[in-house]
């Protein structure tokens, strides 16, 4: 049989092919996608560059981080629908929780994987008014006056808008001693003064700042400071209400995606870097309230000490607040009549 002779020939050819096939270069150009909410564009532009430098120094690898921004709820839905996010940095825990509940993309205990309930920085809700505060807006009461035009995004799509709504609710709850009818009426009057509902916080900033619509913009604190920085303190001013809410935008890596893409270590390191003094300093520079005490101390004078409620204490957490207020047929649907 001539099989052996030919098998030898085949082996030689196979060896030749494998010999001339060079190993792939130790290419370590890694790409990461951070799917975030609307106002974090500037924060993550600087943070990504800093982390890329840090990672290069530490490992020699080049990491390119792509950013995607939009309304927080909308972003979460995109990830559930297949957007390959290695990490998400969203406006509120409910939107991240949806990745577990609706997509099984992350484990149930995702919030315990990083310090501070996976929220490396905080913010709150303030009012941005036009210079001189021509409508004399000082507190939530002033927003429901007839003739006051308010800009806020749609709570159905924007995480920031949900914080706005809940802060107003907390204020009304105290004002009306928990009378739900009066609280709902207060919220209804507030949204009656909203002429345009944007889908996200950045769009609402555009509406108020660039398009010149409205007397007051209910805004993330960081977004209000950014408007002052970008468009001039001679055009706008910030008003701190008597009560607001502690906003804790959470972050996590998307297990299903990072395991598939082999980016788990990198994604974890990326988010952990947010907690380092360097990461916290960048957050502070972009008007987020840092968690790290020594960094927070440096920015203490910038932020007004506003009394704040928390989502857990005031509303029983997002798992209760979301369906009650923002679910289909929820309180917002009942009171908002466009």
């Amino acid at each position: 049989m001539k099989l052996n002779r030919h098998l030898s020939l085949a082996s030689a050819l196979l060896a030749l092919i494998l010999t001339v096939s060079p190993s792939p270069a130790q290419a370590k150009d890694i790409t990461l996608l951070n799917v975030s909410y609307d106002p974090t564009r500037e924060l993550y532009t600087e943070f990504n560059a800093a982390f890329a430098r840090h990672w290069k120094e530490k490992t020699g690898d080049t990491v390119n981080i792509n950013q995607s921004h939009g309304g927080s709820g909308k972003q979460a839905r995109s990830v559930i629908d297949g957007l390959q996010a290695d990490v998400v940095t969203l406006a509120l825990a409910y939107d991240v929780e949806a990745l577990h509940e609706k997509g099984r993309l992350i484990p149930k205990d995702w919030q315990r994987r990083l310090p501070d309930n996976s929220a490396p920085y905080t913010s709150t809700i303030v009012f941005l008014v036009r210079k001189g505060n021509p409508k004399g807006i000082k507190d939530w009461d002033d927003l429901v006056r007839p003739g006051v035009s308010i800009v806020t995004p749609n709570p159905k799509t924007s995480g920031g808008a949900r914080w706005n709504y809940l802060a107003a609710w907390a204020y009304a709850k105290r004002k009306f001693n928990g009378d739900e009818v009066q609280i709902k009426d207060f919220i209804a009057r507030l949204f009656k003064n909203v002429p345009v509902l944007d889908t996200g916080a950045r769009g609402a900033t555009t509406t108020f700042v660039q398009r010149g619509i409205g007397d007051v913009f209910i805004s993330w604190e960081n977004e209000a400071f950014l408007a002052l920085k970008e468009y001039g303190a001679d055009k706008f001013e910030i008003v701190a209400p008597s009560l607001s809410i502690l906003a804790e935008p959470p972050v996590t890596w998307v297990d299903r995606v990072v395991k598939k893409r082999g980016t788990e270590t990198l994604a974890k390191a990326y988010l952990e870097y947010l907690y380092t003094p360097e990461g916290q300093e960048i957050a502070g520079r972009h008007f987020y309230r840092p968690r790290l005490p020594e960094v927070a101390a440096r920015y203490k004078d910038r932020f007004v000490d506003i009394p704040m409620v928390t989502i857990d204490e005031e509303f029983g957490g997002w798992s209760k607040a979301q369906p009650l207020h923002f679910g289909d047929g929820g309180v917002f649907d009942q009171v908002f009549k466009p």
Partner: peptide, 9 residues
């Protein structure tokens, strides 16, 4: 302005 913004949106 509101009408224009609504159209834009």
């Amino acid at each position: 302005r509101v009408l224009e913004r609504k159209q834009e949106l």
